[in-house]
Design a protein around this nucleic acid. Structure first.
Lengths: 216, 216
DNA sequence: CCTACCGATCGGTAGG
DNA sequence: CCTACCGATCGGTAGG
């Protein structure tokens, strides 16, 4: 009993350490790249030795995979979850776009978007890292398509709406907003991305009042 | 006279070599990244020694800047120039988008788009490389805005068209199409990007017949 | 243009 | 978890 408690305490502490290391890795990867992420740099930033990191992940590749999964959890918690509190339909689609813009604008990650950066970096670099990124990208696009499908099912969007087409457009506007925001700040890119998605949805929606007013 | 001819011949040969090296650098950079571009790898791919490259560019940074300018010339020649043969107005806007999609689809560069990749890689990495990328990005967005402005001036688009807004949307669709094409080929991303720009322009255009028919 | 070499940093390992 | 070390590769230089 006592030994189990000690064991659990150690596990819990280990888990907290692990998460803290991975949060730093996600953040560093948005600046240096997921490949540029160096074990020595990460160790130094955290005040531990390099071999301390090897105790948790046996290779750089394992660390990269763990970093990707941590970035996914962070995204699920800080972008997807808040949007899911909006009512199903076009309001939820827009809430997701808005949560995404907010995540970028708050500069949660110094390099903007972990996934956008990593997808460009690994788009033609075969291996397990790329495979995992592709898997999560598919998951993300499926979520977008499902939310669009929900809006169609709710009668808010026309029944002939092309789900993947609209999902692609929303994804494009979100991804390009974040890179432009880092490339030339301050930038109206977020305003353009918000307006484009809002106008597109209002144009299609049977009840445009479900979406925010278009400002002058 | 004779000496000048020899001199010119050498210069011309040197220039051809220089361009061939830079073409390889542009191509390699789309795979390994503009930072991941290593002098040793580039030298090996070209069958020359590393110091042979240092004879042309005194540092990696100089090579990176020359590579960026070469990518720009390639883009001007293979994407912008063909589009400029279309009549001014919405047809030219769409021709530019189409030339861009064609450039990506033909896989002129294995990693898709030199600029999209480099902009993500250097969006938060200060220095002269980033500065040059920002300059060229501004130049590109100005071109897009100018073409949209021409279409307004020609009376093909409404006079209250938001030029940078529409330019942003076109840029977003083009940039995301190329990364998705590399991330999960074959992909309908190009079809989505073409259709989105076409529909957007047709919706705004006073004479939709200027744009390609929307297929089923 | 070449060979040969420099110090720095990389990912990873040995031994404790 | 640490120190100490490995071979490989990096950008860059010396000397010719």
């Amino acid at each position: 009993m006592f030994e189990t408690a000690v064991h659990d305490g150690r596990l819990a502490r280990g888990e907290r350490t692990r998460t803290a290391v991975l949060d730093a890795a996600v953040s560093l990867a948005t600046e240096a790249g997921l490949d540029g992420l160096s074990l020595a740099q990460l160790a130094q930033r955290l005040g531990v030795s390099k071999s301390g990191l090897f105790a948790h992940w046996r290779s750089k590749e394992e660390l990269q995979l763990a970093t990707i999964d941590r970035a996914r959890d962070q995204w699920a918690e800080r972008v997807v979850a808040p949007a899911m509190r909006a009512p199903r339909g076009v309001r939820r689609i827009y809430a997701l776009h808005e949560a995404r813009m907010g995540f970028y604008e708050k500069a949660v990650l110094p390099g903007g978007c972990f996934f956008a950066n990593a997808e460009f970096e690994y788009s033609v670099r075969p291996g397990v890292v790329r495979d995992r990124l592709v898997e999560l990208f598919r998951e993300w696009m499926c979520l977008l398509e499902r939310l669009v499908g929900d809006a169609v099912a709710a009668g808010e969007l026309p029944s002939d709406t092309d789900l993947p087409q609209l999902a692609f457009e929303i994804e494009a506007l979100g991804m390009v907003a974040v890179v432009q925001s880092r490339l030339l700040p301050p930038t109206p890119a977020y305003a353009y991305a918000r307006r484009a998605v809002r106008d597109r949805l209002r144009m299609l929606c049977r009840d445009p009042s479900l979406l925010p007013e278009v400002d002058a």
